[in-house]
Design a protein around this nucleic acid. Structure first.
Lengths: 129, 129
DNA sequence: CCTTGCCTTGACGTCGGCGGCAACGTCTAG
DNA sequence: CTAGACGTTGCCGCCGACGTCAAGGCAAGG
């Protein structure tokens, strides 16, 4: 399978596939003319990468999952390194949700106060330049 | 007040202040030698900018708040344009929290499944290169 | 005069996951 | 033979809020 076919089957671009390879996630043999030739298994790998990217992982985070797949596992999730990354990411997401929740509270407070004070102090900015 | 003093009093850098000015948020007079000279009021503006940035606003979002302050209001929040931005941002934050919550659920599921399957299928990736 | 320390503008680097283009080689069908 | 559809490498652009030089002007004290 050449790069164009893999790209189409995976629903992505050749640019993207070369990018993954440059970052150590994809593998390809080379035919005599220098073209990249992919195993069927790489399609699976690309799907894994895309799924994890969609969830918010970075390429570096994804590497262990790919290694896990290559090691013969049916899922890229089952290896200890992958599990560690999953845990870490879960913690990050939790932290992020917490921060955003705090921000949300502040925004609501700010909005409420602004609307309350609106009648008292208002000198509308858009009427003055 | 020169730029160094304002930077120090605002707890930021001169680079940052020049950046804000370049993006239409800060104002300065120029002394004979070309130095920026700031009013006391600009300190207030810088604080407003920093506070909003910390909450997650972009510089473009902040412009109405600064205009509102300059228009003579005690808070940058009370003008209609500012309120509109606050509302929009609140909606964005809500959407973001929702997405992250979905991601969180998926991560937990993935983690749970991975740990369940661990004993059955495991070929640890880090032992194979 | 020289140093030190303030100020000026201008321009490139950062981070990540690519998109897009250039300039070129390869293969195939008509 | 040639067009066109594939492949290759390589490099710039993007987004945003700055950090970090670079190269120089201006002020003041020893």
């Amino acid at each position: 399978m050449l790069i164009g076919e893999l790209a189409e089957r995976a629903g992505t671009s050749t640019r993207t596939l070369r990018y993954y390879e440059a970052h150590g996630l994809l593998r390809a043999h080379r035919s005599a003319n220098g073209y990249r030739v992919y195993d069927e298994a790489e399609l699976r790998v690309v799907h894994e990468i895309r799924a994890l990217l969609a969830v918010g992982f970075g390429l570096d985070d994804i590497r262990p999952f790919v290694a896990c797949l290559r090691a013969g596992n049916r899922s890229g999730d089952v290896c200890p390194d992958s599990v560690a990354v999953l845990r870490r990411k879960l913690a990050e997401v939790d932290a992020c949700v917490d921060r955003l929740s705090a921000v949300r509270r502040q925004l609501r407070t700010q909005l409420t106060l602004a609307i309350e004070h609106r009648e008292e102090t208002c000198v509308p900015s858009h009427k003055l330049a």
